[in-house]
Design a protein around this nucleic acid. Structure first.
Lengths: 338, 338
DNA sequence: TACGTTTGTTTAAACGTTAAAGCAACCATG
DNA sequence: CATGGTTGCTTTAACGTTTAAACAAACGTA
């Protein structure tokens, strides 16, 4: 590595003291009454020497790192990798650095990652919290750390969050199947205590109720994350034994992917007999003969909003706390040509 | 944020000078002849006060950030998001921080991201270089920056890299189709000057030659990244007009995804008439009736190897430079049950 | 002409580390 | 019993910033 140029070098070059250079280069020249003339000289020299500020030194002094920690469930899951990408882009534009960590939906891993990021002195967090992480996050908030929850939230927690209205999205999804005249509508969800997943189940129940249909608990499948493939296989088998279902609502993209795989493995033409609807976009569905309707989440908007909220909070412009709900869109028809 | 505890606090607590604390806490107690007794007292106090080192201060002093920059084409592409995930995990274990940037295969974006990461004082880079980025990377190397190229490489550049043997992988893929008795074998690639893509084309040619077949240039399709969907549509149409092909080898997962989509859109049963083989794993293929053979890249190994190489280089254990080629595996049959 | 104010700059101090050099007390040795 | 080497610590300085306070010169005013 070449010897980096510092404020000192510029100061020497221009023949002026170090703070003057600092003032000018951080745009505080005016308020520190630096003469226009020297300001120009400093700027010129800085450019000539290709000065790059040492962010470590700056952070040390200011106690701000211009870095945020982002903890998602798993960056290799398309939903989260898309979210990650949006956050990355937006942060880049705003000159913030992002450090990602994957929790793998496990509290223990989450806590480790959190600690790791805290030790990196990040200015704030965007978090898609896993189950049981509420205490860790409360703790964070107690210490006045800036946090924005994304995709998920906790009931009774006064925290910034950017989510969708899972209940009504789920009502719409279920209702779509009801409107098509289906009677035995199953839903497949993860076994989880997370509020947003509970909301999706609620939506399912509510839609059925509104339609005056009775809920058959056998049609509500909860998949354990520990052995999703095995459980899905069993579940799909059950749903199609005895009295087969005539529609299935998968509550996440990963569930849908595995579920469809099992279904198609069982019967190549199954989608001619069973209607399916899915939460989240997934390029996978392009390959199926039948278009699979899906509940499209505004990933881009979510990421951007979360980052804005967070930065506002970090820079002290944040009002109390905000809970932002974005709209979803049920995609039922022809795909958009891009 | 709460007032952080520093070395000073521990020093005061134990009644000893600051450097002593530093020595003990960085494991240099012995070599600085700190007595066992005080060392223990210091460690105890550090734990009691829950001391977390200020990495900015440390970096300022040591000129090392324990941070690496990773520039990939696009984190939301499954191949790269999987790679990102592996690197994240591995870095986490080795206590290195990772900052990701996406180049979007554009030199200009790449340079911006590079500059951004450089200004963050990263200790080194893992890079999947886009087209035309050779000068930027040469420049980096000239300044003795630690760099490991991944997935791609440049001919005649003395740089660490972790890649696969694209030529022979491509020969195998093509050969697989030849063995099945196909005569008109098309291949779909990106229009690109990148060496690894050229290698894949070479492999295709070589396999045909070895089999004593003549190359029909009409069967070699190059897709421009500017308008991939449109070009793919045209290409697929052409391949199936007049004299239809009887096999297609897609050279990347994104090409395959779009290509298959177009093919299936044209004719739902097309895979009964045309054999397809693909570079890269993709969960998408689960949905197709026919198993699609694919060339599996050792993503995990690639990420881990790249990180090891990089860290060795950063910490000065690196020999000259290394070009590491990992093996690929042609997956042709029953999928592994997990 | 003296005095407060403005203008443009410098000096000093600090952020939390690490690295080198300094120093005192002790020990063993010839 | 002076000498030199350990042992265990402290002091000093530095990394590159930012911030506050100090200062000197020039100016306007009385």
């Amino acid at each position: 590595m070449k010897p980096k140029v510092s404020l000192k070098d510029i100061a020497k070059e221009v023949g002026v003291s170090i703070p003057l250079v600092s003032y000018v280069l951080t745009g505080k020249g005016k308020e520190n009454r630096v003469s226009e003339e020297t300001a120009q000289k400093i700027l010129k020299a800085a450019k000539a020497l290709n000065y790059q500020p040492n962010l470590n030194a700056r952070s040390l002094k200011t106690n701000k790192t211009k870095t945020i920690g982002v903890i998602l469930a798993d960056i290799s899951n398309p939903f989260f990798s898309n979210l990650a990408r949006v956050i990355e882009d937006e942060a880049f534009l705003r000159d913030y650095t992002v450090i990602f960590g994957s929790s793998d939906e496990k509290k223990e891993k989450f806590d480790k990652v959190l600690e790791f990021l805290l030790s990196r002195q990040v200015d704030g967090f965007i978090i898609a919290p896993p189950q049981d992480s509420k205490p860790s996050i409360s703790n964070l908030l107690k210490q006045k750390t800036s946090v924005v929850l994304i995709d998920r939230y906790f009931k009774d927690m006064e925290a910034n969050c950017v989510i969708i209205d899972n209940v009504s999205a789920s009502v719409s999804a279920t209702d779509h199947l009801i409107q098509k005249g289906h009677k035995r509508i199953a839903t497949v969800a993860y076994k989880s205590k997370l509020a947003h997943f509970a909301d999706r189940c609620d939506g399912y129940y509510r839609a059925l109720e509104q339609a005056g249909m009775v809920v058959d608990e056998k049609l509500v499948v909860k998949i354990d994350r520990e052995s999703p493939k095995k459980e899905m296989k069993r579940a799909i088998n059950e749903l199609f034994s005895n009295e087969p279902v005539d529609a299935i609502y998968f509550q996440t993209n990963t569930l849908a992917e595995e579920g469809l795989r099992q279904m198609l493995g069982m019967d190549r033409d199954i989608l001619k007999k069973v209607d399916v609807i899915v939460f989240d976009q997934n390029s996978t569905y392009h390959f199926l003969e039948n278009f699979i309707p899906y509940m499209n989440q505004p990933i881009k908007k979510m990421g951007q909003t979360a980052l804005s909220l967070l930065i506002d909070d970090i820079e002290g412009k944040g009002k109390k706390y905000q809970k932002i709900q974005l709209g979803t869109k049920l995609e039922t028809g022809v795909e958009s040509e891009l």
